[in-house]
Simulated scan of single mutants.
Amino acid sequence: MRSMNVAERRARLALRHRLSPQARTDDVAGIARSMVVLHATDPATVFLSVAARSVGAVPGAVEKALYDDRTLLRMLAMRRTMFVAPVELVPVLQSSTANGLAAKQRATYSRLIERGGDVPDVPAFFAEAEEAAHRALLARGEATGAQLGADVPLLRTRVDPAPGKSYSRPTSVTTWILVTLGCEGRIVRGRPNGSWTSSQYRWSPAEAWLPGGIEDVPADGARAELVRRWLRAFGPAPAADLKWWTGWNAGDVRKALALLDVTEVDLGGATGLVLSDDLEPEPAPEPWAALLPALDPTPMGWQERGWFLGEHGPALFDRNGNIGPSVWWDGRIIGGWAQRKDGEIVFRLLEDAGAEAEAAVEREAARMAAWYGDVRAIPRFRTPLERELTS
């Protein structure tokens, strides 16, 4: 069995994730393709992930790709997580993951309406509300949820999500309907109301990004294509990492792998998978430093992170498994960083990596400070070290 040790995995990470200076680019969509998708649960993550992998790109370049060129699209997909994806990958994500998610969302919200609303025929109500919201959005071209609620009376229907509970607060179904339409690929999240750190988006018809809508592709082939891209970016890795990243059941993972030509490799006590045409080692780049944001797709790409995280998990992760801002040196995490209220970028190294590493991290901190400019962004999920650095 071919052996792929930690040093080889770290070299792949440096080059394929565009973290080594020699692999960086100002092609925003190209950066997203390198990572398969960019995490977008925290809106700032998308921009800061690009910052870490670019040479001279600025926030406006990311906004241009998202909202003017429309080469990227924001959508819910794996593990019901928000991602920014290259538009050519959207049909794959829709068929492999989002369609199933849409069915689950519809079922969940329907139960809430049945339990806490005064709606005699929930399936008919849900379908009618969806169609009315979609028509209103087509007429407007772009709208906020509040604007669509004003246009469509059904969206203003109020539901008590937890009847009899003291903490329950009646809410309208607007967000539920729009989220479901988004999962179905009929509408998309467009430009936010505020800066690039805002999560209050305006909605647009999917046709505004993809003329003719999202192409319908077979689910089995879509899952295989998504796995192929993940293995190219994150392989070699155990099948358990793939199952975790996709959020699929074990059967769907096995079926997808069966459609691909993959090879098992020894990861030093564990068995990993790699595409069979991707067994050649990458040339090790020069030592490099990077400041990756909270929820960056590199550390969130694997479930088993010991080979690059070491013992630093308790300081850098919250209780729900979300990573905060991390400092990297030559393929491993050596610390964490944060932006203070005055805009200063501060970091703490959790191990002694040497003077060269510390100087390189200082340079990356200066780069990140220039990217932020006057913008202040607190990570959506606070982690122990990030809180300490900003206290």
Rank of each mutant, 00 (worst) to 15 (best):
R111N: 10
P86Y: 05
R16D: 08
A206L: 12
S276K: 11
G251R: 15
V28G: 00
L295H: 09
S110P: 05
L101R: 13
R33S: 08
V262P: 05
T108E: 14
R380W: 08
T180C: 12
H312N: 04
E88L: 11
V188A: 15
L385Q: 02
M1F: 13
V262Y: 07
V58N: 02
W302P: 04
T144P: 09
A32K: 03
R340E: 00
G149I: 05
G185H: 11
G313P: 02
D160T: 06
W302M: 07
V217Y: 07
G182E: 15
I345L: 00
D252G: 13
V253F: 13
D252A: 15
R319T: 13
K64Q: 11
A258E: 14
D296H: 04
G331T: 09
R376L: 09
L267P: 03
P86I: 08
V375F: 03
P153Q: 08
I345G: 00
P163S: 03
V87I: 13
A61I: 00
V46M: 04
A357G: 02
T174A: 11
W328K: 03
I31T: 05
A14P: 05
W203F: 14
A237P: 10
L137H: 10
W248R: 10
A239Q: 13
T175L: 14
L38T: 09
L112G: 07
T25E: 02
S95Q: 13
W176K: 03
G30D: 04
P161M: 06
M300Q: 13
A65P: 04
P218S: 06
A338M: 00
E207W: 09
L13N: 01
G212I: 12
A85Q: 08
N249E: 14
V227I: 15
L178H: 10
L89D: 15
T144V: 10
A360L: 09
P287W: 04
L15D: 06
D374V: 08
E114Y: 04
R363M: 02
V375E: 06
K64M: 02
L76H: 14
N193I: 09
W244K: 11
S54D: 05
S391V: 02
G251Y: 14
G190M: 07
R18A: 05
P287Y: 03
A365S: 03
L291C: 02
V92I: 14
G268Q: 04
